[in-house]
Amino acid sequence: MADATTFTNDTQILEPFRGIKKVTIEEYFTSGHRTCQGCESALVMKLMVKASGPRTIVLGSTGCMYVANTTYYTTPWVVPWMHTQLGSSGSAALGTAAGLKALMKKGKMKSEPINVIAFCGDGGGADMGLNGISATLTHKDYNCLILLYDNESYANTDIQLSGMTPYGANTTFSPPGKTHRIIHKRWKKNMAGMMAAGHPECRYVATVCASYAVEMMNKVRRALTIGGPTFIHSLDPCPKGWDYDPMLSHELGELAIETGIFPLYEMEDGELRYYGKTKAIVDGRARKPVREYLLKQGRFAHFTEEDLAYFQEKIDEMWDKWEVPGVVPFKRTDAAKAAPSQK
């Protein structure tokens, strides 16, 4: 068992897939799950391990992608997979990476780069598990990826609101009523921006949407190749929680980007790159009105014109007033006031 191979902390070099036809045929997340029709998160799981390949360990915190995927005596996972607690994706990734590293370094296990990916939902990641993820992103000596699949509610437990649920959405914990039309008045957390801005030694943070599958897989491959602790935020339309026809999942993902609600970007070694239609928006293309996205979903069916206007205003602010549009919510200051000495 013990191979005294020389240990290096190298990662697997996963070159990007150059187009859909170059994507490998093998699947590492296959049949055996019981996710809903139109579930984008299941697609994210499939693409995530397709991108990482077979020498991967996946840790899954509690949520849909635990309960609906892995029923006792059946599993869709071809790669080794383990459950972790709701708030533990960060520590699961770190512990697994640390265990492998220790054993390889000490010659107790054959030395080879093994991908470690821990996934969490928006509740497990942005609410309960935030501190663990944050800590992990400061441990630059451990190679692991944390992937947040964000379906914008506690979708496994009956669709309750999370810190990532959009303003005003109807959830079982925020039902519109006769006295209060809007119960959920918090604005969604800016997870990827927070992770990128708050962890200077985390080398790679990206946002993805499975509507753009090749780009999504390539970001996973880039994160794993770069190494150290990395973070990816995926926006996953959810027919059950968002209340729409399952055939619209892909289209809603596109609309989230086109309306500017969810920007696609990556931050590699501190350098920001916008992707696809987000890049077009940054370059001046008009954003679609948010109502085109919101009104396709039952969770916003109670919205009045006033609510739609408020939502639009907040999104406009994100693009027109943020210092780094769509990413960092520091407002642009008046150039004259901020730097009076400049030309």
């Binding site: 360990i57 840790l59 383990m82 972790t84 607690q85 708030g87 533990s88 960060g90 520590s91 699961a92 770190l94 512990g95 697994t96 640390a98 265990g99 492998l100 220790a102 054993l103 107790k108 296990m109 501190n131 663990g132 944050s134 800590a135």
Partner: peptide
């Protein structure tokens, strides 16, 4: 960064041997 993570990290390290 807290005991929850402290115990989870070693739990997972133990599962890989």
């Amino acid at each position: 960064e807290g005991e929850h993570s402290q115990f989870e990290i070693v739990k997972h390290a133990s599962t890989v041997g």
